[in-house]
């Protein structure tokens, strides 16, 4: 692999590995809460931070991080209030973020359209050694937080009312998750770009949930998909001379399509089966129908034929 001789490629691949792990680890909780588009908005807000950094001559990572975290806290507080107007307020915040970023960047000295493009869509040559160190530290913080708080995040995401009744610190946990999304957005901005960063949080999860029956399984598969498409996307973008962000996201969508088609085909190719008539009751210990243990399940004798549970319905068994 002669491309590894280039320092910028080494940095881009390392950054890709970090975000490939971190983005789906955060994204799985966004998909669980049906907030798939929140990361997108935070990317927009971070662009204003980049603009501020370029205008003031500060490293854009820090200003972007400050803006994204402030935006995350504002979004979460609005969501917690649950006002119907918060939808519109979010839209204003998101568009304001991207408009502010574009205007500020145009006014900063030494900023070019290519520069804006790199922030919006990612560029493998743009990760500096300092960036990489910061990204590494931030990515480890995100991964440790997501791992350590995973059960708490899961419980709140599965049933917020229950979590409240159980006395869990729901608002602090939601703020922590929002801040982790913001940090992930900033870590990903060099490689994936601020407009596409949310895709790397969401699309690997969308693919993984087709392939897994459990939450943990979905998270693990999503992180594996994230690493494969990020690293693969960076390599492809080097050889094909394409923007890295778009390439990574297209790779993730390809995995998603394969997962959808594959699971659909597998379901279609399964042994054809005959569904039993509609039931007004579920068979069980008290339904009164004789139960017969049959290999790994229990059949119930119903009007002279055997019903075997299959998903949400019953199959006719034994001809």
């Amino acid at each position: 692999m002669e491309i590894l001789q280039y320092d910028f490629m080494q940095r881009a691949l390392l950054a890709a590995l970090l975000i490939g792990l971190a983005a789906p680890a955060v994204g799985v909780y966004l998909v669980q809460r049906r907030l798939a588009l929140i990361g997108d908005g935070m990317g927009h807000v971070a662009l204003t931070g980049v603009g501020i950094g370029l205008v003031t001559g500060t490293a854009p990572i820090w200003t972007a991080l400050a803006c994204a975290v402030a935006g995350a806290v504002a979004i979460e507080l609005m969501r917690a209030k649950g006002r119907t107007s918060s939808d519109v307020a979010l839209a204003v915040l998101f568009y304001g973020g991207i408009a502010g970023g574009v205007v500020l960047m145009a006014k900063s000295s030494g900023s070019t359209p290519a520069n804006l493009n790199a922030y919006l869509f990612g560029s493998i040559t743009s990760t500096t050694p300092t960036d990489l160190v910061v990204f590494g530290v931030l990515a480890v913080v995100v991964l440790l937080t997501m791992f350590g708080l995973s059960r708490l995040f899961f419980t709140v995401g599965a049933d917020e009312e229950y979590a409240n009744a159980a006395g869990l610190p729901v608002l602090p946990l939601n703020l922590a998750l929002a801040i982790m999304v913001a940090v992930t957005v900033v870590v990903s901005m060099r490689v994936v770009g601020l407009l596409l960063v949310s895709a790397l949080m969401i699309v690997p999860v969308a693919a993984a949930q087709r392939l897994s029956r459990s939450f943990t399984g979905t998270a693990v598969v999503a992180m594996a998909v994230g690493v494969v498409v990020s690293v693969g996307g960076v390599l492809t973008s080097y050889y094909a001379d394409t923007p890295s962000g778009g390439t990574i996201v297209l790779a993730a969508i390809a995995v998603f399509v394969v997962a959808v088609v594959g699971t659909a085909l597998r379901a279609a190719l399964r042994q054809p089966h005959h569904e039993a008539e509609d039931h007004l009751h579920a068979h069980g210990p008290t339904c009164g129908h004789p139960a017969i243990r049959h290999e790994d399940h229990v059949d119930y004798v119903h009007d002279g034929h055997r019903h075997a549970p299959h998903g949400a319905h019953y199959d006719e068994h034994g001809g």
Binding site: V31, R34, L152, D159, Y162, R213, F215, T216
Partner: peptide, 28 residues
């Protein structure tokens, strides 16, 4: 105090097993 809400849809947009959901009740 254990609470069983009226809704019986939990888990959200990502699959979760019965064990995973029940285990979340152990957190307290």
């Amino acid at each position: 105090i254990g609470y069983v809400p009226q809704r019986h849809t939990v888990g959200g947009g990502v699959p979760a097993t019965v064990t995973e959901v029940v285990a979340s009740g152990r957190l307290v």
